[in-house]
């Protein structure tokens, strides 16, 4: 009993850890997409952030400076996406693909040039990473049945970015639905003409949204290389940015359902490592690759309307041009 509880808790614990980068990136996507800018560039921003954080932490020994660098790198790419999509009215999908490609290449080239260990950064020592935070009373309460282990194993003992990511969900919901900024962002994603005629600067608003996303993707990248991992590897995001976007769509562009979608994807990921070579009763051995592909298959099914219908913000992907 206690064993299976611990097994379950460790499964949920890794689910939470694996959900964090998805969640941060998905929330980044939330701001951009609700403002009408396609957020296919999450992958590239996250990857650039991961590299910047690891490289800076490796050189300075400070995780916090690494985080700042991650935010700066991610912001720079967000600004490029904003310039192409908003100022130049370019194709947002093409712009995002370009950014992802540049990030993939540039991080590998710079990692190799600066550290010369095959496109990686050196392994970071513990004090150059975000360490685990033990919440108050975690030790003393661990004796309490059921709730004690839950608190000690699942709630306590994560790094600060994990708590930040989960707190950002209610914060984002609050911003989106209870503040002026949120009202305007949601409006500009639906009908930019309405925003323009109300005397609000459409371009500035959209830049704000894209840059907020830049900051959040910086967090996501730093988490990957300096909290969850201990250094950067070439293409270490491995599609997480696309999965985050998928989670946002699966969550129908709303914060809490997006969180649930991220948790679902992360759960599949956590399960996959635990199911390797395990035969399930009645089903037999489930191919690991199937579980691995599950998030992608789910996204396809949802988009096709087989799992509920997702209605995107109406003006998404369309450059705003004043119309007569």
């Amino acid at each position: 009993m206690a064993d299976s509880l611990l097994w379950l808790l460790s499964l949920l614990d890794s689910t939470a850890r694996l959900a964090v980068p998805l969640l941060l990136a998905a929330l980044a996507g939330f701001y951009a997409e609700r403002a009408g800018i396609i957020a296919l560039h999450l992958e590239g921003k996250m990857l650039a952030g991961a590299f910047a954080a690891a490289a800076t932490a490796a050189v300075t020994g400070s995780a916090w400076l690494g985080l700042l660098a991650a935010i700066a790198a991610s912001l720079a790419l967000a600004a490029v996406h904003g310039f192409a999509s908003i100022s130049q009215r370019g194709n947002q999908v093409v712009s995002a693909v370009a950014i992802n490609t540049v990030a993939l290449g540039l991080t590998a080239v710079l990692a190799n040039a600066w550290f010369q260990i095959g496109g990686r950064t050196p392994n970071l020592p513990a004090d150059a990473r975000f360490g685990e935070v033990t919440l108050p009373l975690a030790q003393s309460l661990s004796g309490v049945p059921v709730l004690g282990p839950i608190y000690a194993e699942l709630v306590s003992g994560h790094n600060i970015l994990v708590y930040l990511a989960f707190l950002l969900v209610p914060a984002t919901a609050w911003v989106a639905y209870r503040t002026r900024l949120g009202l305007r962002l949601r409006a500009v994603g639906e009908n930019p003409s309405a925003v323009d005629t109300a005397g609000i600067n459409v371009a500035r608003l959209r830049y704000q949204a894209v840059l907020i996303g830049g900051v959040l993707c910086g967090f996501a990248g730093a988490y990957l290389s300096t909290a969850q991992g201990a250094g950067f590897q070439t293409n270490m995001t491995a599609g997480k940015g696309y999965l985050a976007l998928a989670a946002l769509i699966l969550g129908k562009w709303r914060p809490v359902p997006t969180l649930l979608a991220c948790l679902l994807f992360a759960f599949a990921d956590a399960l996959q490592t635990r199911l390797q070579g395990v035969a399930l009763p009645g089903i037999g051995q489930v191919p690991v690759q199937l579980i691995e592909a599950l998030p992608y298959i789910l996204t396809v099914l949802l988009l096709a309307g087989f799992v509920g219908k997702a209605v995107p913000p109406k003006a998404i992907g369309q450059p705003y041009v004043k119309d007569r």
Binding site: R180, S193, G199
Partner: peptide
Amino acid sequence: MVHQHFMLVETFTVLENLLLGHEEGPLL
């Protein structure tokens, strides 16, 4: 100005549309 093609956010309530651009403060 009342435009020929309405400048309304269709997914918003009437009140939210009225507030847009005239919120007077950061909180709604």
